[in-house]
Computed example of a mutant assay.
Amino acid sequence: MKTQPMLEQFIQRHQLDEDYLTHASDNFSPALESIVSHQKQAKQTFLVGINGCQGSGKSTLADYLGTRLSSEFDLNVAVLSLDDFYYSKQQRNELANQIHPLLRTRGVPGTHDMTLANATLEKLCTGATANDPVLLPRFNKFTDNPYPKSQWPIVDRPIDVIILEGWCLGVQPQLMKDLIYPINKLEAEKDRYGIWRSYVNQQLKQNYQGLYQRIDLWLMLKAPSFDSVQAWRLEQESKRQQRRISEDNTQQETFMTSTEVRAFTAYFQRITEQCLTTLPSHCDWVYELDNTRNIINTTQPALVKETASEIS
């Protein structure tokens, strides 16, 4: 079959078992067909947003959808991660010096270059050509800096579908009263006066809403709770190490220990819990996961809401 080689490459890229394709087809084909149908109706670049906490499989899902849209439906697809727009170490150090030391660590809203994110999406939607190509930013998590622009993928033809995934994609800001009390040790000890979390919240209000409004269809991989995040993030780190070993890469790179992973995920707890509580009702497709990332339920909250509105 035409799609088999590309799907085999997909399996190899993500070090997956072959049965992933069976489960993915069962779970994601309806959403895939919806994307194709909407894109044909819109007759313009269609933007799909995928939310999922760290280690939930959102990057894998984005690549899977992109692979099938390209191979089976002959659509031109660009796959991006919100992670690709992280500020450099130097830029985050400047934020840390000016606003709060916790901004030195990438991850939360306020550590992304949203000007670059919006500009990249705008160029892709306007239409890339051989004479006016679009560079897709890429971030290197091993060096904690963006890759050099010379290594960014080049898009030189019009794009039919953009798939954008991100751990905090779609999350809404909290009320000020909800920011008063720290929710973990990190906030209690390192953000005693709430300066960091207030800044992050303000960034969500000011600089992320415009990007959210660009998204035509929302998918969410919903973790059972924040407790799953640390275990999944540890697994993710182990997988990255194995990949680097298999590639026999001699470049000096650092990996996080289990203690460092636990400390790192504390930065994400507040917004992850906000996502799990508030985001599902706004999504077109929600895939509820168990602790081993198996999909145990699929819902279409936005469709239910729309139907209820029509009845009333």
Rank of each mutant, 00 (worst) to 15 (best):
E260W: 05
V261L: 03
T277N: 14
M256G: 02
R262V: 00
R262F: 01
D284T: 07
Q269L: 08
E273K: 05
C275W: 02
H282M: 06
Q274I: 00
H282L: 05
I271Q: 07
T250D: 09
S281W: 00
T254Y: 07
Q251K: 15
R262H: 05
T277A: 15
E273D: 08
Q269A: 13
W285S: 13
W285N: 14
R262T: 01
V286L: 10
R270V: 06
L276W: 09
D284Y: 09
D284Q: 13
E273S: 05
Q274D: 08
T257D: 07
I271E: 04
T265G: 03
C283N: 06
E260T: 06
E260H: 04
A263N: 11
S281T: 14
Q252L: 11
M256N: 07
P280M: 04
T278W: 06
R270C: 04
Q274S: 13
T254M: 08
R262W: 04
T272G: 01
T254K: 12
V261W: 05
R262D: 01
V286W: 04
H282E: 08
A263M: 02
S258F: 00
H282W: 00
D284N: 15
Y287Q: 09
V261A: 00
I271H: 02
A266K: 10
C283D: 04
C275S: 08
L279R: 07
M256Y: 14
L276T: 10
H282K: 11
F268W: 03
S281E: 11
Q274M: 08
A266Y: 07
Y287L: 06
T278S: 15
D284S: 14
T277K: 15
Y267C: 02
V261P: 14
V261G: 01
L279G: 10
T259Y: 05
Y287R: 11
T277Q: 14
T278C: 09
A266V: 01
N249L: 11
T265C: 10
W285E: 14
T278A: 15
C283P: 05
F255Y: 11
D284M: 05
D284C: 14
C283M: 08
Q274G: 04
L279T: 15
Y287C: 09
L276A: 00
T259Q: 15
S281Y: 00
Q251G: 00
P280Q: 03
T278H: 14
F264E: 00
E253C: 09
I271S: 08
E273I: 04
W285H: 15
Q269E: 15
P280K: 03
L279M: 12
F268Y: 15
C275A: 01
T272Y: 03
W285R: 13
I271N: 06
A266H: 10
E253P: 00
N249G: 00
A263L: 08
T277F: 13
L279F: 10
Q274H: 03
T277L: 14
T259R: 12
T277E: 14
C275L: 11
V261I: 13
R270A: 12
F255R: 10
